[in-house]
């Protein structure tokens, strides 16, 4: 875990960036998360998570074309890097390992 430090919210953002491949910019990511998970995401939390992960190397970003909307400001599109994928893999792998090791009995919720 230490190798790829990825918080719960960060993981969510990272996955969403993957899902929105090519269209992953701030507003879109926020919308997506809010839609899928029925949770409120503040702009601040999202943006700081994005920049943090960019600094760690999980994400890269580039500017899109300027349009008339948005006050003429360009969008910044995020993409997962190979390293970011590794981090995701690692995260999912460890979860899966744990999941697989849970004995059957643990899930037998019989009312006695």
């Amino acid at each position: 875990m230490k190798k790829y430090q990825l918080g719960e919210f960060e993981e969510l953002v990272l996955l969403t960036v993957g899902v929105l491949y090519g269209e992953a910019y701030g507003v879109a990511i926020k919308e997506e998360i809010e839609k899928r998970h029925q949770r409120k995401v503040s702009v601040g939390a999202l943006q700081s998570a994005l920049r943090r992960m960019e600094e760690k190397g999980f994400l890269t970003s580039e500017f899109g074309e300027a349009t008339k909307a948005r006050g003429g400001k360009r969008k910044r599109y995020f993409k997962i890097t190979a390293y970011g994928k590794k981090a995701l893999d690692h995260n999912i792998q460890t979860r899966l390992e744990l999941w697989n090791q849970i004995p059957e009995v643990a899930f037998e919720f019989k009312v006695c």
Partner: peptide, 15 residues
């Protein structure tokens, strides 16, 4: 470095 796109996002929400 971050000003333009974040402000853009904010503008979009504003609209």
């Amino acid at each position: 470095d971050f000003q333009e796109d974040i402000l853009g996002d904010l503008e979009q929400y504003h609209e």
